[in-house]
């Protein structure tokens, strides 16, 4: 692979270190020998055709998916079959989903304080103060006492981002955060993500928002058929793709 910008990076300084990771669904080989080092504060955009394994890869990082072979170290904790390790990793990793996955039976404020109260064992007042602070950051403090069903998609996704931030994660994973949104709501979510990136959050983002990739990504990764095909700085990636498959993908995605 040519111009692998981070190939020389030291594993020890990585906040996420993925080595020779393999995953199968039955006979289907979803992830093939994935190697990925993510430095602290690095912003990575992962793209690729559907079914390429990009969502599965980031879902492995907080063990929403198991993998069968290889190793995964998150913030110095190795992902093994151990409840304590899994819990420790999940405390450091926030995740935003395509379909928001807010808890519909809880108010927005309760959605946000659930983690701080039950995981971090914070007093209610403190958890609520933190929650309000994050709601202000995503610009919807006035919705605190509503329920998820009363909010628009864009608002729900911003709440979901705030909910993840409330557990004070070191790493944020975004799994196609704007794919389920109406076009006019994509911007409000991307704005929040850009702001977050500018504050130095380590981010892994599966998205097809190439504008976002150009603007904030340190590195763009292209996946196809369970492999990392190409990775590069956004400028190089878009202006000068090295591999055929990348070129084809970019042609299709940038065609309109």
């Amino acid at each position: 692979m040519s111009e692998n910008v981070n190939s020389d990076q030291d594993n020890a300084s990585s906040v996420i270190s993925i080595n020779q990771l393999n995953k199968w669904y039955g006979d289907f080989h979803v992830l093939k020998d994935i190697n990925l080092q993510v430095a602290k504060g690095e912003r990575i955009v992962i793209c690729g055709p559907s079914g390429s394994g990009k969502s599965t890869l980031i879902r492995c990082i907080n063990r929403l998916e198991e993998f069968q072979r290889g190793s995964l170290i998150v913030d110095g904790v190795e992902m093994i079959e151990d409840v304590k390790n899994i819990e420790a990793i999940r405390r450091e990793v926030g995740m935003v989903f395509q379909h928001f996955n807010l808890f519909p039976h809880l108010s927005i404020l309760d959605n946000l304080t659930l983690g701080p109260i039950w995981v971090q064992k914070k007093p209610k007042a403190e958890a609520e103060a933190t929650a309000m602070r994050y709601l202000e950051r995503v610009k919807i403090p006035d919705q605190a006492n509503k329920f998820p069903g009363q909010l628009s998609g864009g608002q729900q996704q911003r709440v979901a981002i705030a909910r993840s931030l409330c557990i004070n994660p070191k790493i944020m994973l975004f799994d196609e955060p704007t794919s389920a949104l109406d076009p006019e709501m994509i911007k409000e979510v991307l704005d929040v993500m850009v702001e977050l990136a500018e504050e130095g959050m380590t981010m892994l983002c599966v998205t097809h928002e190439m504008g976002f990739a150009k603007k904030v990504a340190d590195r763009v990764i292209f996946m196809d058929a369970g492999e990392i095909v190409e990775q590069n700085t956004p400028k190089e990636f878009f202006d000068n793709p090295q591999v055929d498959r990348t070129q084809k993908f970019l042609e299709q995605i940038l065609a309109h």
Partner: peptide, 11 residues
């Protein structure tokens, strides 16, 4: 997705 979201915040 509810279980996944709950797991992702560490519950």
């Amino acid at each position: 997705g509810q279980t996944e979201a709950a797991r992702s915040i560490g519950l």
